Simulated assay, not measured.
Amino acid sequence: MRRRLVPAALLLPFALLVTACGGNSAAETSTDTDGQGSLTLDVGDQKGGSEAVLRAAGELKNLDYKIKWSTFSSGPPLLEAVNAGAVDIGGVGNTPPVFAAGAGSKITVVAAWHGTSKGDTILVPNDSKLTGTAQLKGRSVAVAQGSSAHYQLVASLKKAGLSLADVKVRYLQPADALAAFTSGRVDAWAVWDPYTSQVLKARQGRVLTTGDGITNGLTFQVAAPSALKDRKKAAAIKDYLERLRRAYAWVYSHEEEWARVWAKDTGLPEDVALAAVRRTYTTRIAVAVDKPLIASEQRIVDTFAELKLIPGKVDFADFTDTRFNGGLPPSTTTPRPSEGS
């Protein structure tokens, strides 16, 4: 039986929310800036990302520098802009920096958040006979190449005694993967929130497994080394990160308010936004860029190097800067519990 197709109009908003995925999308550069002063901080963002949460939390007030926003559809092109020096800092998931480091890009991880990975899932259709990850052998799985879901798929298969070669991988960006999944053209889909929440809320699939205990649940702010060498820009980056940490903390006690803002900014249905906020967003806590974090990312580097998807040896520590850690808790701190939905 063919599963119901999702109307194309519902796919577009989610194509803008690929916080961890691969792809080659140009940026939208805003003509407006926040703040005042002679210094401008060029910030790379994603739809419903840093700008939205900072504005909702009131953290864009009283800036003594300007922020010019550039909106990207995914992490890899944002990091390409950081590498080129077109963006001073921007937010991405846990895997794009690994591939950027593997390519020798000029990027530096300067801040991190640790959350649960319950929103990172492998989904199967409701009528699927699959009940465990090991049963994916020989099955087709959609995933965005170079994404956090890509690593989650590899790690989940390994835990089940399988390798990536044991499944038929279909490298698809989220909008295409969603269409393939709901039309029955793939057996499973490795993905993250808010796609997980969208599928579950629409009753179009169920969770086969999650990334909880499989992936590290980290997200990052990544800066250009040239900006970090500029004393004034480094000071602005420090202030920006402090504001961003306060904004994420604000979300903890304003879930519904943030979900409404996020829904409006991205085109998400409000119930999907709220489910994603509760499952994923409010679990995140700001943590230090420390040795355990670097070791965790190094394991991702080594995994993709073994798969020949990253050329040569890469030391992830060379792409980090700990100067903005302050009194933050260690990266191994337990995330806030997820409410789920």
Rank of each mutant, 00 (worst) to 15 (best):
S105Q: 13
K61P: 07
A236K: 02
I294F: 09
L241N: 10
L11I: 05
F181C: 02
T182V: 04
S331T: 05
S105M: 14
A276V: 00
V6S: 02
T29S: 11
P335N: 06
G93A: 09
L218C: 07
D166Y: 03
L241A: 06
Q36G: 07
A111S: 14
P292N: 11
D166W: 06
L153Y: 07
F220V: 04
G35I: 08
Y248F: 15
T334F: 05
P337Q: 10
L164M: 08
P77G: 05
P329R: 09
A27N: 07
I122Q: 11
K201L: 07
A175E: 06
A101T: 02
A235W: 06
G48I: 02
F316D: 04
S25T: 15
V191P: 01
T31Q: 12
I214A: 10
A202F: 10
T95Q: 13
K229I: 01
T31D: 13
I89P: 12
I237P: 09
F324E: 08
T283R: 06
I89Q: 11
S338L: 00
T334P: 03
R260D: 15
D32S: 11
V222A: 03
T322H: 07
T31E: 08
V82A: 06
I237R: 12
V82G: 05
S163K: 10
V186G: 04
I122Y: 13
V167C: 00
A223V: 11
G23C: 09
K291H: 11
T333N: 10
E257V: 13
D187A: 05
T266Y: 01
A177Q: 04
A317G: 10
T33P: 01
V154G: 00
A202L: 14
R243K: 15
T332L: 09
R3F: 03
N83Y: 15
N126H: 04
A188M: 04
V82Q: 10
G22I: 07
K264F: 09
Y65R: 12
P225A: 11
R243C: 05
T266C: 00
S50W: 00
L241T: 12
D187K: 02
T95W: 02
G213C: 11
